[in-house]
Structure formats: C-alpha cells, structure tokens
C-alpha cells in the first residue's frame, strides 16, 4: 500500500491516527473525492459502530509518534468543533454519544495490498452524512445496509429504503438501544392439531 501519510497529505482535513485516516464528518465528501482523484483505490466495505456512551480514547493513538502532515489542517478545523466527539477533541472533551463510521479501501495500484480505513465520527443525535454512491458505485448497497441496520442516513441518495429487513420493520437493530419486539414462543397450529388428535 502507498504510505498512509502521503495519502493523508493529499486529502483535505485528514489526520493519521492509530493507522487510520480520520476526517471530520463535514469533510467526508471532500475526503472521498480526494481519494477518488488519487486513483487506484477500491472501496470494499462500510461499517458503523454505535457508541451511546461516547467513543473511548484509543490507547495506541496516544503513542503514535510524530504528527502526520495532514494533522495541521485537522487541528485547524478542530477548535470549530461543530462535530461533537470528533477525533482531535477526544482527549480533553467528555465523550459524547456518536457513531464511528469506517470506509475501507484496498489499494489496487501497489502489489502489496493492505486495508486503508477512513474513519468518521458522527453525531449520534443527528446521524447524517453525504452519500458517495455517485463517486463510488460500490457504496450504493453498502450505504443502504448501514442505514437499514444502524440508522445512519446518507443524504443525496436517489433511493433510501431498507435492503435487508422488511419494509415495515421499526427501528435499526444494530443500535445498542434497540429492543427486539417480543415474539410469542409457540403459537403453533401443528401443535394444536396434535393436541386435537390426542397426542402430546
């Protein structure tokens, strides 16, 4: 894979932390556009983690030596802090409820492949990020899955409907506060039949 610090330098407001590229939520569109312009990447996974009690301070991040070239830009945007719980503010500010959204890429240009992860921390109360399905067609199904199961909305999509669950399902099951609807254990017609026949 190409060196992550070089990639970070080419992307606006990106910062290298614990081997991940971290970008603020409002810069996500620009960051993915930047990666596209760098070329040779394959988007192959989008995943989200629900953190109702806030993102834990990543231990290895504290020991990451040196500052990445992109860190300056990120630090400049950090005081604005429109995004609660954004990566640069983690150490000092109290943890806020958030989602960690990860975009994973494979570098197709280099012979040795590794996973490049782009991490975004988004507000849990207002989980909206711009869709990148037009730039990256692979994101189409992946974004639909994240919305279906985790409830993160991707704005600007042509179609936002459930993909895995049935359309009248209520809630987003992978959220930590999701409670599954109670299911009756044995409303079984064949059991009734057996009872009628005298068995059981």
């Amino acid at each position: 894979m190409r060196d992550i610090t070089i990639i970070a330098a080419a992307i606006p407001a990106a910062e290298v932390k614990d081997g991940l590229l971290v970008v603020p939520a409002k810069e996500i569109e620009g960051a993915l556009d930047g990666l596209k312009r760098l070329g040779g990447f394959m988007l192959f996974d989008i995943s989200a983690v629900d953190r109702p009690t806030g993102s834990p301070a990543p231990q290895p991040a504290a020991s990451t030596p040196g500052a990445a070239p992109g860190a300056l830009a990120a630090a400049a945007s950090a005081p604005a802090s429109a995004v609660p719980g954004a990566a640069p503010a983690q150490s000092s500010a109290p943890a806020q409820p958030c989602f960690e959204l990860s975009y994973r890429f494979m570098d197709m240009r280099e012979k040795a492949k590794d996973v490049l992860t782009l991490r975004v921390i988004i507000d849990r109360d207002h989980p909206v990020v711009p869709s990148v399905a037009r730039l990256w067609p692979a994101a189409d199904v992946l974004e639909r899955e994240v919305w279906d199961l985790m409830g993160i909305e991707f704005s600007g999509r042509l179609k936002q409907e459930r993909i895995l669950l049935k359309s009248d399902f209520v809630g987003h099951p992978l959220r930590k506060d999701f409670v599954a609807p109670k299911r009756e254990r044995f409303p079984s017609p064949s059991w009734d039949r057996k009872a009628a026949e005298g068995g059981l």
Binding site: V49, D50, R104, D140
Partner: peptide
C-alpha cells in the same frame, strides 16, 4: 472474494460489535 471481519472489544467476554464484510453482498451490486 474478500471476507472481512471487524471486531470491536470492550474488554468483556462478549464482543462489543462484530461487522462482516461479505463478498457476495458487494458482488451483486
């Protein structure tokens, strides 16, 4: 294709979050 697992641990015996990247799901796109 690429089968990927993201595992997040919170130090307990159970995983905090498991995410699967399944190849077929992307291939049908």
């Amino acid at each position: 294709g690429i089968m990927g697992y993201q595992v997040v641990s919170d130090g307990t015996v159970k995983p905090y979050r498991v995410h699967m990247r399944s190849p077929s799901f992307c291939n049908i796109g």
